[in-house]
């Protein structure tokens, strides 16, 4: 049977591995190239301005904006996936101290795990689309995480009272 503790600990370690694997893939195959392109487009923009070519300068800065937007999100995905995974594992370890029924604990655990997957995924999808769907996904994910952690906090507080 899947328990809240099992879900959080195994899900948390799997999420941490996902975040690490993603970070490693990004560092090896994309990061250096992306950083080089960011610097290159910025320099190209200012060089074009020095040569009094405003259209080229604007185009280069727009390229810089896109690259920087994607770079910030790639780094955020890596950091948030692992950070949230650590929180999931810790909550799983401390599950005995949450004074709720197993059903409520499982519900909160599922919410926290789902939110921890959806939030970075929403941020990652923003690198493909600037529309509102990826942002919405990230908002839903973060709301799920916050609500679940607040629920667990309440459970810890009840344990304190009952003991």
């Amino acid at each position: 049977m899947v328990t809240a503790r099992k879900l959080l600990i195994l899900g948390g370690i799997a999420s941490a591995l996902l975040g690490m694997g993603y970070g490693m893939w990004y560092a090896i195959f994309l990061e250096h190239q992306e950083l080089g392109s960011i610097g290159g487009s910025l320099a190209a923009g200012f060089s074009a301005a020095a040569e009094r070519h405003p259209v080229e300068a604007d185009a280069a800065l727009k390229q810089y904006k896109e690259l920087k937007y994607a770079y910030d999100r790639h780094v955020d995905v890596h950091g948030h996936w692992i950070g949230l995974a650590m929180l999931l594992i810790l909550l799983g370890i401390a599950m005995d101290r949450v004074e709720f029924s197993e059903r409520i604990k499982l519900f909160l655990a599922a919410g926290a795990l789902l939110g921890s997957l959806l939030f970075p995924l929403g941020v990652l999808f923003q690198t493909f689309s600037h529309g509102s769907a990826p942002r919405g996904l990230a908002v839903v994910g973060s709301a799920l995480v916050i609500a679940s952690v607040a629920g667990f906090t309440l459970g810890f507080a009840r344990e304190r009272k009952s003991s």
């Binding site: 923009g45 200012f46 301005a49 009094r52 070519h53 405003p54 300068a57 810089y64």
Partner: peptide, 16 residues
């Protein structure tokens, strides 16, 4: 993020 772009644009526009 929008300000980052607009300020850099302002710099290049000022240079031009």
């Amino acid at each position: 993020e929008a300000m980052d772009f607009s300020l850099l644009s302002q710099m290049t526009a000022g240079a031009v």
